[in-house]
């Protein structure tokens, strides 16, 4: 990388946009650059990206940003309206809502990150295996996928949460269990289209094993449509987690999970509207951010735009 950073701005751009890349690495970078340029042209996607980056920054710097301890209860100072001292007011135990919101960001991020790193690989593996091998493996795996698809998501999550016991980790696991089947379907469809391609045959002739073919050649082909789908699903995951929190089965108190905050605040809805509204808006903004980002990514990675 050192040599590249030494190249001047225009030089780097030239290197990236060169019609005659000198190495595979350069070609890859070039493609990524073009994608990025196209992505930045999409204002909405950039807004989405900045929301997501903002969420990450808030998570990292939460201790610096939060004016109060998010867990410090003060019954004498409960349900205070927004004001100079508490920008978003206080909740039913007298805790500062802004601080809880800031600390709550990490749980939202955690939910998204963990679901993605558990559900996406499972879906990818099941889908590519089914598509690649076909036959009874395909039939079995797809039947299982169908069974999971036919369950209502929130109810399946609910069942797993009660089976595994409450707590955020289990809620995440439960959401992951409900999230993988669509990925498996996408991966299978992609696999089937490339399975018989020449480059796979070529690799096979070179003696690449089945496992090598799947991980080295087929999985990368599925990535772009999967990334798009996963990003678009992130908002849904946040909403399911919030739904579990609303039903009192998500995060453990006093964890400031946003869904649970809305749930706790709903008894003050008429008079002290901010207690439920502020975290509700936070959920909305972050989900919107992920949706905008996913939408933008799709324009770049999956121009056909189908789902």
């Amino acid at each position: 990388m050192t040599t590249q950073t030494q190249v001047s701005q225009t030089g780097l751009k030239q290197w990236l946009t060169s019609d005659t890349p000198k190495s595979r690495w350069q070609a890859k970078c070039g493609r990524a650059w073009l994608g990025w340029v196209k992505f930045t042209e999409n204002k909405l996607a950039m807004i989405g990206l900045s929301i997501v980056i903002g969420l990450i920054l808030v998570t990292i710097f939460a201790p610096l940003l939060a004016p109060y301890d998010p867990l410090a209860a003060d019954l004498a100072n409960r349900i205070q309206p927004p004001g100079a001292e508490h920008w978003f007011g206080t909740d039913q135990l007298g805790r500062d809502i802004l601080s809880r919101l800031i600390y709550g960001a990490q749980y939202t991020l955690l939910i998204v990150a963990l679901v993605v790193i558990t559900a996406a690989p499972v879906g990818l593996l099941v889908g590519t295996a089914a598509g690649f091998f076909g036959g009874w493996i395909d039939a079995t795996l797809m039947r299982i996928t169908d069974i999971f698809l036919a369950f209502p998501k929130l109810i399946l999550a609910l069942a797993f949460v009660s089976a595994l016991g409450p707590g955020l980790e289990n809620a995440i696991l439960a959401i992951a269990i409900t999230a993988w089947p669509p990925y498996a379907r996408i991966a299978r469809a992609e696999t089937i289209t490339v399975r018989k391609s020449d480059f796979i045959e070529a690799a096979r002739l070179q003696g690449t094993s089945n496992l090598g073919l799947i991980t080295g050649h087929i999985m990368p082909m599925c990535m772009s449509s999967l990334v798009v789908r996963v990003t678009l699903d992130m908002a849904g995951m946040i909403l399911i987690a919030a739904g579990l929190g609303f039903l009192g089965l998500g995060a453990q108190p006093p964890m400031p999970e946003w869904g649970a905050m809305v749930s706790e605040g709903r008894q003050f809805l008429l008079e002290q509207w901010w207690v439920a509204t502020v975290p509700g808006i936070a959920i909305f903004i972050v989900s919107l951010g992920f949706n905008l980002l996913g939408d933008g990514l799709r324009d770049v990675l999956d121009p056909r735009g189908g789902d």
């Binding site: 908002a235 909403l239 709903r266 959920i283 909305f284 919107l288 939408d295």
Partner: peptide, 16 residues
């Protein structure tokens, strides 16, 4: 944006 907002709203909050 209107459409994505529909995807992003927690339904229990919207309902209330």
């Amino acid at each position: 944006v209107i459409g994505l907002a529909g995807y992003s709203m927690p339904i229990f909050w919207l309902g209330l």
